[in-house]
Design a protein around this nucleic acid. Sequence first.
DNA 1: CAGGCGCAGATTGTATAAAGTTTCGCCTGT
DNA 2: ACAGGCGAAACTTTATACAATCTGCGCCTG
Lengths: 235, 235
Amino acid sequence: MAAKSRPKSDAPDASDRVSRIREGVTAAILEHRLLPGTKLGEDEIGEIYGASRTLVRTALQQLAHEGIVDIEKNRGAFVARPTPADAREVFEARRLIEPTIVDHAIDAVSPAWIDRLQRHLAEEREAELRGDARASVRLSGDFHRLVAEMSGHSIYLGFLKELIARSSLIILLYRRHDTPACGTDHHAGIVAAIRKRDSGTARAQMLSHLNEIEAELFLKDPAADELRLADVLGL
Amino acid sequence: MAAKSRPKSDAPDASDRVSRIREGVTAAILEHRLLPGTKLGEDEIGEIYGASRTLVRTALQQLAHEGIVDIEKNRGAFVARPTPADAREVFEARRLIEPTIVDHAIDAVSPAWIDRLQRHLAEEREAELRGDARASVRLSGDFHRLVAEMSGHSIYLGFLKELIARSSLIILLYRRHDTPACGTDHHAGIVAAIRKRDSGTARAQMLSHLNEIEAELFLKDPAADELRLADVLGL
DNA sequence: CAGGCGCAGATTGTATAAAGTTTCGCCTGT
DNA sequence: ACAGGCGAAACTTTATACAATCTGCGCCTG
């Protein structure tokens, strides 16, 4: 409560404290710093961000609507735990939507966008080289979001943001341990195809990229027996 | 809505008072009882439903996330006013998603579902015969939602719910006056194709159905001069 | 008489306090 | 010793009160 005491001329910071909370928690989830099932106490988060429970609550409700947080009545908010069925649905939806998004991105191609994409690829490569797994995971998702932004389709962008966030949780839960590094090269190939405005290749590369990610998953029963029980009985 | 009991983004059940508010307002918008741009005061709604502003607020925030309510800071909530650009995006997304949904519905076909669909068609015909425009509009959207529920894809269902709600606003804003009654027959044809498990026909019928709806729209400038102004200046 | 300024009413944003529910620990009875 | 129940603590949920902001109308000034 000490953070806010500017009576009149404070516009930018006070404009949206809720967004900052939401984005902070989202980033933590996307970077695998918050594990599925983790309790997200209102007091706890409120103290971290210097905000009241009211604001924390609205942020958590937005995240719940995005599917990355589960709110159980009178129990609190938890980082979502996608089931294998959820995982299959998420990736099917991505296979449906993302090739179309790439098509639209090609329609919007421009030197500025190409530059932005390539700068992103450089960031990804650097994080990979640095061995920064958390940044790698986050940037990998950001690549897909960037392409969606490029497409200019606000609805597809909104849908994809949800799907990406859930994908991050899914990968964390179900990824096989023996797989090599995720395909930064795939991303580079997609960018190259976009640059050449080769729709067919771009779509195909995006599709195979998604297939490869899903192929790296082991979508059987979750690791914990407890989770399996909740899955069987809870439905 | 009983088909999915997983506490995700949609309504778990009507036991919650927030859900009742949200569904009440949603129904009013889908039935064209609330017009785009209408102010949704918190006190006003709270009095109607006998709820505190806290609950009304969360309901409105959920509706805002679904895209059928716009919340302007320090101004309040208003029924959303989709732009022509929004309309094109919505229908493009529906053309992408709904054929796939129909495919999945065919996979899940069963006598119980066929019965449910045909009872729905009967309801639609009855409302049309009765000349009940509001019920017709609502039921027409419900048909698509029903097929999505049948598909068992919770993600597609969630996406489609958003798209249907927005479509309702779009149709209200941009529909030509000289068009005949919306194709109940289209729906019947889709059900017939689903029943026969004829994927190709079902997809094609759904696609042409959506194309026909969009063709009935006049996606140029909105009717009100004021709205046109907001469109030009606001963006 | 037109245009700008300012005050008042209303509405939303935020915080805090009260109420209800769940959970965990402890105690008692068998 | 263990099962079951009672009770307290912590948390979420809901309501209310306060503060900040915006809109509209009236008044003053040029």
